[in-house]
């Protein structure tokens, strides 16, 4: 049984880590880009960002003033039991969000869409979002917080089989060029692409591809993995760098996730996870131990399963 107090304390710690500490995989990716960027203004921007990450860690201050919209992904092993059940879990995550917003502090971004009511704590109707996933084995729960920012850089389009990869490339480029100008997408970003599903799940897949996979990870389908490499290179060939200045630092990495869709369609979404890619993860074990990490490891073989019945692969998935 996992104590609810442990969940709330861990959630508060995650809120702070996400806001302040740039994940190592993103940092490594950005350093690589900074070393190869030859646009003078784009280079200046990347260097300033690298200094900014250091300043945030030294001062224990949020990386960016727009601290995004806190949300939670909860993944539970099949044998996990939570004190008070799912209602207590959600209450703990809402409390942690409100408390951390005040204490770090984060920007109280969340308002009512019509009345603009602001509780000054990032909590309200449907906020923070809490999404769930499950894994076959284990008494643990993984708490993942993502504070994705940005009003720009995300788009959806209904494509069709006849659009093919040429159509996918077109929409990918359109999204990057449109939102890359003036740096509205806060690039270089982790670009997540969702393909298939239905409109809502396509958006969810793309967002998760951007926010729940790390720089350097590759889809387990080798042909999709090859597309990820190709699209990353394509995005960086636009000639646009940080802030939309001349350069080649647009895509730190490109992650693609797919879901089965209607036979007539090929839904596509594009999401940009920004220069402050805020994500933090903790596994709370059944015995109360807490392990922090930055890789959500969300897309396991189980999450990508295709068959009716789940049969574990011969080599156990890395999260097992």
């Amino acid at each position: 049984m996992i104590a609810i107090e442990t969940i709330q304390e861990t959630a508060e710690r995650l809120m702070e880590k996400a806001a302040i500490e740039i994940p190592e995989d993103y940092l490594d990716g950005l350093r690589t880009m900074a070393n190869t960027e030859d646009g003078d203004l784009s280079s200046f921007v990347l260097q300033a960002m690298l200094e900014n990450y250091e300043a945030a860690k030294q001062d224990r201050r949020a990386m960016c003033g727009d601290t995004g919209c806190p949300r939670w992904y909860v993944k539970m092993g099949n044998e996990a039991r939570i004190e008070g059940g799912p209602i207590a879990l959600e209450a703990a995550l809402r409390r942690a969000t409100a408390k951390s917003t005040n204490e770090i502090p984060l920007r109280p971004n969340r308002v009512h869409p019509l009345w603009r009511t602001d509780h000054d704590n990032n909590v309200g109707i449907g906020a923070p979002e809490i999404e769930y996933g499950f894994e076959p084995d284990g008494e643990w729960i993984d708490l993942v917080t993502v504070h994705k920012g940005g009003l720009f850089g995300t788009d959806y389009r209904m494509l069709f089989p006849s659009d093919g990869v040429e159509g996918i490339k077109r929409f990918f480029l359109d999204s990057l060029v449109a939102f890359g100008k003036r740096g509205l997408a806060c690039q270089p970003a982790i670009i997540g692409i969702g393909l298939g599903g239905s409109k809502d799940t396509c958006m969810v897949l793309g967002k998760r591809a951007a926010c729940l996979r790390t720089v350097g990870s590759r889809n387990s389908d080798a042909r999709i993995a090859a597309m990820e490499d190709e699209f990353k290179a394509l995005g960086n060939s636009i000639g646009m760098g940080a802030m939309g200045f001349v350069g080649k630092s647009m895509v730190v990495d490109c992650n693609i996730e797919v879901g089965y869709c209607h036979t007539g369609g090929m839904q596509m979404s594009v999401h940009a996870f920004c220069l402050s890619s805020r994500r933090a993860v903790a596994r709370i074990h059944g015995d109360g131990r807490v392990e922090y990490r930055t890789d959500p490891d969300w897309f396991t073989d189980y999450q990508r399963r295709e068959s009716v019945e789940w049969t574990p692969p011969q080599s156990l998935s890395k999260s097992a």
């Binding site: 200046f44 921007v45 300033a48 960002m49 200094e51 900014n52 990450y53 300043a55 945030a56 001062d59 201050r61 949020a62 990386m63 960016c64 003033g65 727009d66 920007r107 109280p108 971004n109 308002v111 603009r116 602001d118 000054d120 740096g183 806060c186 940080a242 802030m243 920004c274 220069l275 402050s276």
Partner: peptide
């Protein structure tokens, strides 16, 4: 720059002098 160099800009603030209309408009 960035966007955004929030921590660097935060360091450049010597002090907060005042906040106006936070009750009516919210902190943001």
């Amino acid at each position: 720059v960035g966007y955004g160099t929030g921590a660097l800009l935060g360091r450049g603030i010597k002090q907060v002098k005042a906040v106006h209309w936070n009750k009516e408009l919210g902190l943001a």
